[in-house]
Simulated scan of single mutants.
Amino acid sequence: MAAARRPRGRLPRRVYVVRRLLVVTLALAVVLGLVQLVRSLGPDDAPAEQAATSSARTRTVPQAQPTYGPVPVQGLTRKQRKQAVLAAPSGECRPDEISVLPVVDKAEAGGRISIRLDLQGTQPACTFEVSSETVVVKVATEDGQRFWSTQDCGKGVPTSDVVVRSAQPTSVQVNWSGRASDTECTDEPAWALPGFYEVYAAAAGSSPTNVSFEVTKPSVRYVTETPSPTPSPTASGTPSRKPAAKPQPSPEPSVSPSP
């Protein structure tokens, strides 16, 4: 019996469509399988990437917070410091915009003591009138007892107009007599004895700042003189000098006469 022959010629169109669908389906299956294989190989990396992406989306750029009060010089760049120093005053300072820091470099009992006041403000630059009405300075003993104050001795604060800046302090001097003060600011109260004291300073209407300092014993200078020898005076008032001995002539040898 003869074998059946395959028909020759073009096949029906649906056969080609079915074949194409099978090829596309097979390709999709391969792609999906590769994707599943990649996911199975790195399960720990996906959460980390998702967390990084989430944190990057939720991360916010920190905004600069406004700075209140005096700005230290070391906190500024060179350009900002130069601009702050050269800034022209824009008006008058309010007392509550100024901080006052007292400094006592040297204090000896029995004499005047200079108190330096370093003024800084919140504005870049403004003018301020320093006087006994706008600045208060008080010296207290170690146990907190009031000893001296510019409210009693207002002349200790020289009146002057200064420029106060936020970038660097402006210094003024307050003169303390070294004595305790009374209501009339007389010279009768006692001197400050050696020991530790507290000095308070503030602009009128502001919170005071205080530092401790020591009043030391007064320094004593000793002068030593070296005596120089002087000739002893005579009765006539002139130094006496002994005459030098004159040389005596030697005796000539005597010759006896011959017999």
Rank of each mutant, 00 (worst) to 15 (best):
G91V: 10
A52C: 05
G144P: 03
V15P: 06
R10G: 03
T226Q: 09
Q83A: 11
D44M: 09
E252S: 15
C93G: 01
P169Q: 01
P43M: 09
Q36Y: 13
L26Y: 02
A52L: 14
A56F: 11
L117T: 01
A27E: 13
A109W: 03
P158R: 10
P257C: 03
G42W: 11
P249T: 11
Q50R: 14
S132Y: 07
T186Q: 01
L76E: 07
D187P: 00
Q80N: 08
K79A: 14
C185K: 12
S90T: 15
T226I: 12
A84D: 14
A244C: 01
Q168R: 13
A87S: 11
V255P: 01
A203E: 00
P72S: 12
T25G: 14
V135N: 02
Q74G: 10
Q151K: 14
D182G: 05
V130H: 03
V24S: 08
T53A: 12
V61H: 13
V73T: 15
E198V: 12
G121M: 06
K155L: 12
V104L: 06
Q83I: 06
S177R: 12
P259S: 13
P239D: 07
V71H: 05
P43D: 05
C126S: 06
N210C: 02
K82W: 10
V164T: 01
S219K: 15
